[in-house]
Design a protein around this nucleic acid. Sequence first.
DNA 1: CATGAATGAGTTTTCATTCAT
DNA 2: TATGAATGAAAACTCATTCAT
Lengths: 220, 220, 220, 220
Amino acid sequence: MSTTSDSTDRRKAKRRLEIVQAATRLFADLGYSECEMERVATELGIAKGTLYLYFRGKQELFLACVDQGMTELQEVMDRAMVPDEDPFQKIARSIRLFLEFFDQNPQQIELLIQERAMFRDRPQPTFFVYRDARRSRWREFYLDLIQSGRIRSDLPLEDLLDSISNLLYGTMFTNYFIGRSVPLCQQYHAVVEFAFRGILSDTERARFANASPFPGKVDG
Amino acid sequence: MSTTSDSTDRRKAKRRLEIVQAATRLFADLGYSECEMERVATELGIAKGTLYLYFRGKQELFLACVDQGMTELQEVMDRAMVPDEDPFQKIARSIRLFLEFFDQNPQQIELLIQERAMFRDRPQPTFFVYRDARRSRWREFYLDLIQSGRIRSDLPLEDLLDSISNLLYGTMFTNYFIGRSVPLCQQYHAVVEFAFRGILSDTERARFANASPFPGKVDG
Amino acid sequence: MSTTSDSTDRRKAKRRLEIVQAATRLFADLGYSECEMERVATELGIAKGTLYLYFRGKQELFLACVDQGMTELQEVMDRAMVPDEDPFQKIARSIRLFLEFFDQNPQQIELLIQERAMFRDRPQPTFFVYRDARRSRWREFYLDLIQSGRIRSDLPLEDLLDSISNLLYGTMFTNYFIGRSVPLCQQYHAVVEFAFRGILSDTERARFANASPFPGKVDG
Amino acid sequence: MSTTSDSTDRRKAKRRLEIVQAATRLFADLGYSECEMERVATELGIAKGTLYLYFRGKQELFLACVDQGMTELQEVMDRAMVPDEDPFQKIARSIRLFLEFFDQNPQQIELLIQERAMFRDRPQPTFFVYRDARRSRWREFYLDLIQSGRIRSDLPLEDLLDSISNLLYGTMFTNYFIGRSVPLCQQYHAVVEFAFRGILSDTERARFANASPFPGKVDG
DNA sequence: CATGAATGAGTTTTCATTCAT
DNA sequence: TATGAATGAAAACTCATTCAT
């Protein structure tokens, strides 16, 4: 009974992927609520009921789409880790790949939003599960750079990781919502520059040496 | 008979606000779809039909909630513009107020997400309308700082504005989704430090002078 | 909020009853599955949604119909208990009223069947809840007759009660399923005669005196 | 090619029976609607499609189950007709076998209910087809007993047959619905006693001689 | 004979909105 | 102004049945 041949399994996996791909497009284009199962089926030229042979229901199909997207992102990001590359190159490459991925797969962003809006009870949005999974690798990576004096040591490591994350996360969403006004490569360059050197001019920077210029005064 | 007395108008406005406040809480807690008009009415101790005397429908009520939230954000941010304050203090204060506002009004974030997910046809999410409205003021502000040599001039102004915006936007959402691991004041400090000085150590910074260390090589 | 005026309550109760009456007819005519809520609404000239203002769902509506039927049966049977009547008259009258009730309300039988077939998890079919409720009254009644020597004392009381119950229950269902071949009053007469005197002729009866003629031999 | 070998036919018949047996259990346990064809197939360890090689559809399978049950009942009842046995023994034995059969095959009762509930258009429930088929035999049998003075002649024969039938029918269903409170053999004894002698005590019986004690007064 | 992937008709229920009072 | 009873459109999901292999 539980003897399912290999070819059957592979067929099934392939079918699942086809469905996920079509559904991703439609969920992103129409939004979760507006995207009817009937529509997905029609798009694929199959019957509604067939979808339920591959997915338990609409929710499962949707979450499979998000998962698939995040998996693809993982694969892309893993390629950034070219061995023996200069660390800053690695960082820069990762930033570029991240922005490029969502530039080329805007549906994935839409899916992340839909997920958050519709499945409010899920413990963590899929994106952050993915993000956390990679976090420890980056933590070690930056730690090395701090210890070798290439990255400033006066910022708590976690805060530093957060800042970069958040910068990219915000950039990705903003690009999606209101579009980029400049080409991706210029944007990427600006982001890297901003993240690496900050906004201060050298003069200004020198003026305050290493002390933060506006510590507690703000709330004063 | 367009004779509506002042007191009537004021009463109406007050009632609208009460409804918006209750609805904001419920929309944020339950999500747009799950939040039924009946529920909002019950919460307020009024009849369902009464809501329709103040708002054309569910959608209008929801958008009024988002608008109200953004208006309150505006008011808070306007207070940041203390005249004759040091410009960097102004920037820092703005960052702080922004983060604080959403820290204290997380429902507004939820509303922004719900808005984006449910009303996909709207030209621009309300948040970005708000953001754009303030953009020109900040543009002039930063231009002055660049011209007076306090902010580096090698980054295109628009990119610089974007980067700061995106950093804050990403920080706000991430805080909401997975929480802050550090107190708000520490986070605020880290964000400002990151934005002002970047991540490079002084040594590293010196090594490359003013040239970006990894220009086109990335995609090579 | 919970202040519902009397007149509102009465209106609502009246509406409920009207719905139950229409639904009873349709459930009986079409069967539970075939009887769509839409159909019930149409029959009443109201909208489908309105039904849900009075009943939580189809199941609740159906069970309300069964309950209503059994309540009416109760009322009819209570009228049988004319005080100071001869006990045998009481028995005979009860039998008659029981058969008459289902003769005039065949839908109630259909509902009992549908209930049993569709709601298999219910602890006891409604009919038997009703039957048990009256049982203790009959038990005392028959006990008196046994003690006063008017009813034979060699049959266990419970078995006797069961036999009469079952005879009536079987008669009711059979009437419904394949119809009576004789008028109700003749059938009623036959049932009473059968229950009171049994089938043996006096000769035969005398032959065995008071001993059962075929005790254990049956399985021999 | 109507060449179907004997062994093929027998195999097929055997398979049909296996299917019917499994289906009977499931139809009875789950109810007609809840019992899915898939479930029946799984239970048998075969594929859903295979069922359709043996039965035209779900309805036909179900009716085959009912038929099979009634056939088995027939076989059991036929064994009651031991030649040259005392007629009353025959009656008593039949009653016993009838009650025993349904005591040991409660699923058959469930099937009778399901049949009636789901297939409302059928001319006669299967049970009554079976009942009618045996009726004429019993009619002759009782006629002999009446003519030979062993059974009272003042009750119309048909009414008498009906009463016994209905008593058994009601007993069977009630046993199934709410269980027997006494062992089957005691119940059987009580039923026979009730059917043979009625409930009146000898005194009471004598009081009214052969006249019904409560003729038309009931409705008066 | 056997399989099981594919089909698609069919129905309950929800809830935003209306409108008579 | 306020009410709340009435409306009815809309969609996910099931499962008996078919048929290519």
